[in-house]
Amino acid sequence: MTENSENVSRKGWMSTLAKAPAGLLAEAWQQADVAQSFAWLRAPEIGTVMVRGAMGGTGAPFNLGELTVTRCALRLDDGTVGHAYISGRDRQKAEIAALCDALMQTSEASAVQAKIINPLTRAYQSKRASKAEKAAATKVDFFTLVRGED
């Protein structure tokens, strides 16, 4: 596996696209108005990925169970190839994600970044922050009685 800076940013946007709620992605895609014609290299296909866990959280791997995944690959008219691997069974979402992945490698990158990737990243972060804040409100301090040192 090669990890260079190009890969790192591509990993980032592919992950943002994969984790985005389908409705939000479709809406951002519509509004961005960057659609291009393309040819399928691999039409959207539904399958699974076996999710692995680690014994004791850190040890040897074991098979936990599967996750539904949709994948596809396409080529823009200029030859740029886009891939998508997303969880769930939404072919439409996979298509948009692969188109965004391709466009992020073209001169449209800044438009896609600003109109699609950034809003999706913000939505993801705000959802996570909201959950973390609700969890923080349930943070508890237990005091031991009788035998305690407090």
Binding site: I46, T48, G53, G57, A132
Partner: peptide, 21 residues
């Protein structure tokens, strides 16, 4: 589940990085 092809297996999930609720 048995009707679906399997695309691969994930890396072991890193539960130490869990966003804990």
């Amino acid at each position: 589940r048995t009707t679906l092809p399997r695309f691969g297996a994930s890396a072991p999930i890193k539960t130490e990085n869990m966003a804990c609720m």
